[in-house]
Simulated assay, not measured.
Amino acid sequence: MEQATLKRTCLYDKHAALGAQIAPFGGFEMPIQYKDIVTEHQAVRNACGMFDVSHMGEVSITGPDAERFVQHIFTNNVAGAPYGSIFYGMLLYPEGGVVDDLLVYVKSATNYFLVINAANIDKDMAWIEAQREGFDVNIENLSEQFGELAVQGPKAEAVIERVLGIPCKDLAFYTFTELEHRGEPILISRTGYTGEDGFELYGSHAFINQVWDALLESGEVEPCGLGCRDTLRFEVGLPLYGNELSQDITPLEAGLGMFCKLDKEEFIGKEALAQMKAEGLKRKIVGIELSSRAIPRHGYDVEVDGVVIGTVTTGYNSISTGKSVCMALIDKRYAELGNNVQVRIHKRLQDGVVTKKRFYEKNYKK
C-alpha cells in the first residue's frame, strides 16, 4: 500500500536548521526535541518556551445560522457569548464517542473559528460538512492558510510584549483578540496545552516565521518539540485525543463532563451522554502513581488481584515531580482515590495507587 506523503509546516526549515529530531506526527513531519525533552520541559515550567503548532487545523463557520449550527455540533454552550470568548469542548458521534476535542473562538454570533487536531483535519471536515443540512452556514477549511505558534511559560506575557511588541497583558485566560501587527492581521489568544500561562499566535506563514526568528534571536525563549508538549500536558491532566479521548472513550469517562452542557436544548450525542450519566459509568480515566521508578506506557494492563481492570492511556516518569505516574482507563469499581492497583510492566507487576489525574500543581507563590 502506498504511504501517504507527510506534510510540513511553514517552520520546517527552521527546525531542520536547528538540528531538531524530526518524526511523523498527525500526518506532518514535526520536531520532537531540539536539545532534550527535560531541558525544554523545564524551560516552559520555569521561564518561556515556544512550539510550532502550525499542524493544527483551523475551520471557519459563518452565516446566519452559525450559532445554531455550532450549538448543534459542539458539546459546550456558545449561545450569546461575546466577541473574544473561547470554549473547549468536543464533537461527538450520536453514540457519545468523540470525533475530536477542539477550541471554538467566538468572533460573533455569525462567525466562529474552530481549532482542531492535526491528525483529525480530514475526518473532522467530513463530519462537520455532513451535519450542515438545514443550516444556512459557510464552512471553510483554513488550515493551509494559517501558521500557529504557542509561547508558553511564566515569562510568556513579558516576552511577547517586550520582544514582539504585541499587546497581550490585558487578555484573560481563554480569551482572544484580533489586531494588525506590522500591517498583517493576526489573532492572539491566552491559551495553551502546558498547564502554564501562555499564548497562541495565529497568522500568515510569513508572520509566524518572523515571530519565530525574533523570539529565537532574543535568547529568552527555548524552542520546544512535541516531546515535552506531551509531558507538560500530561502532568496537569490534560487529555490527548487517541489516548484519553476517542470514538470509544466518552467525555464522561474522561472526566470532562463539565464541557458537555446537558442543559442545552440539543447537541449531537447529548441523549447518549444523558443516558450514560443516568445509568452510571462503567469505566473512568484515573491517575495512578507507582511506588517504583518503572515507567508505565500506553497500552499496559492495569490489574487488581490478577484480574485486568483497564489499560494505561499515557504514562511517564514525571519530569516536574520525579514520580512514575500514568493516566489509565479502568473499571469504575476500582476508581476511588487511594485504591491499590498494579500495572504490568515488562511482565512484572508494579504496585500503584489511584490518584487525581493532575499530577503537578503549579505553585504560584513567589
Rank of each mutant, 00 (worst) to 15 (best):
S85R: 13
Q131K: 14
I139H: 11
T110D: 11
I116R: 01
V78Y: 05
M125F: 15
S108Q: 09
G80W: 09
F113D: 02
V115C: 12
N76E: 07
E133M: 13
L91P: 00
I139V: 15
I86F: 08
N77T: 01
A130S: 15
E133L: 13
Y83M: 09
I128W: 10
G80I: 03
P94V: 03
W127I: 03
A119T: 02
G80V: 09
Y83I: 04
N76K: 03
V99N: 02
L102F: 07
E95H: 11
N141A: 11
D122E: 14
N77C: 11
A130K: 11
M125E: 11
F135P: 10
L142I: 02
L114M: 13
D124H: 04
V99A: 05
G84P: 08
Y83P: 04
L102T: 05
V115E: 00
D124G: 07
V78A: 09
M90V: 00
Y105H: 10
A119L: 02
V99H: 01
N117W: 01
M90K: 00
E95F: 07
S108R: 05
D122M: 04
K123R: 14
L142S: 03
I116A: 09
G89N: 06
L114Y: 06
N141S: 10
N141R: 07
V137C: 13
I116W: 01
Q145P: 00
S108I: 03
A109C: 06
Q131E: 12
D124M: 04
A119H: 12
I128T: 09
N120I: 00
Q145T: 13
I86T: 07
N77W: 04
A130C: 08
A126E: 14
G89P: 02
G96T: 04
M125D: 06
V98Y: 05
Q145A: 14
A109L: 07
E129Q: 15
Y105K: 00
Q131S: 11
G80Q: 07
L91N: 12
V78Q: 02
P94K: 05
V115Q: 04
E144W: 00
E129T: 15
V115I: 13
K107V: 10
A81Y: 03
V78K: 00
G134V: 09
G89H: 05
A118Q: 04
N117T: 14
N141E: 13
M125N: 13
A126T: 12
L92Q: 05
A81N: 00
E95G: 05
